[in-house]
Design a protein around this nucleic acid. Structure first.
Lengths: 143, 143
DNA sequence: CTGCATCCGGTATGATACTG
DNA sequence: CAGTATCATACCGGATGCAG
């Protein structure tokens, strides 16, 4: 080996701010993010946090015009994870109601915190982005 | 109109658990989720929460074998949003250090909560998924 | 070592049409 | 009204090669 340069100053482990309590895998953050990471899950949870909603109501309440397909997929996943409860009524015009489970409600608090943080720091983030964009001109033909 | 069935029992607005403080748009949750929603951002923040890291160190520390491309894109975005600070040293073997900014550290707290929730409810979620899968057989060529 | 460009595939998202 | 199926598209993420 040509290993010279005295390598790097071995980085001290520092003190872990976030510890992984599950040595089996990585931090469990991924589990939640995978569910909340998609485009609509959060909005469904937020809307459902206010009470029981029907399919169409959910679709209308969610900003951004979610398609039936996406709404279906989203609520299905949430239902599978036990965050949402789906109730079907055998009526002539089919009626399905969605509501948060206990698990779902417990997540509500987290999302609320996330929303608060987002709202509080949005200006700072926006400013940072603007500044960054300004100092990083994209070579789109002009210099 | 042919609307019979006494329609639906008009759903009362209920009391909003999560309110949108920004009428201009939707809830600000999207802002954070868009940044945390990708596959690696969270891990970078988690790792950086423990201290300053170099590019290669970051790559090695993150579980799941992140590619250079993704690491670069991820830290760039975080840097653009002002969550991460990037310092370049004009050394012969290029050296770049990454560290969390104040904004980044404040997010650490949220992620910790998210991780805690995830870890605490992982068993419940896993059980729910198993139960759901069992009652929802997929027609993979079967009858 | 660090970072960028290009090609490529998988998945998520979405528009539309059709069924119960 | 609720949900599924199909097709098309956009973006994410990975592999590789090259450059400072």
């Amino acid at each position: 080996m040509s290993a010279g340069h005295t390598a790097v100053t071995t980085p001290a482990p520092d003190e872990p701010v976030i510890v992984c309590e599950t040595p089996q895998d990585e931090c469990g953050v991924r589990d939640v993010l995978d569910r909340l990471g998609d485009k609509w899950s959060v909005y469904v949870v937020v809307e459902l946090a206010s009470g029981i909603r029907r399919f169409k109501e959910l679709q209308r309440a969610i900003p951004g015009n979610i398609s039936q397909r996406m709404l279906t997929l989203t609520v299905r996943r949430l239902e599978r994870d036990g965050l949402v409860k789906r109730t079907v009524y055998a009526a002539v015009p089919p009626q399905v109601e969605y509501e948060l489970t206990e698990l779902g409600h417990s997540l509500t608090h987290l999302i609320k915190s996330l929303a608060d943080w987002s709202i509080a720091h949005r200006p700072a983030i926006a400013a940072s982005r603007t500044a960054w964009d300004a100092s990083h001109p994209k070579p789109t033909g002009g210099e």
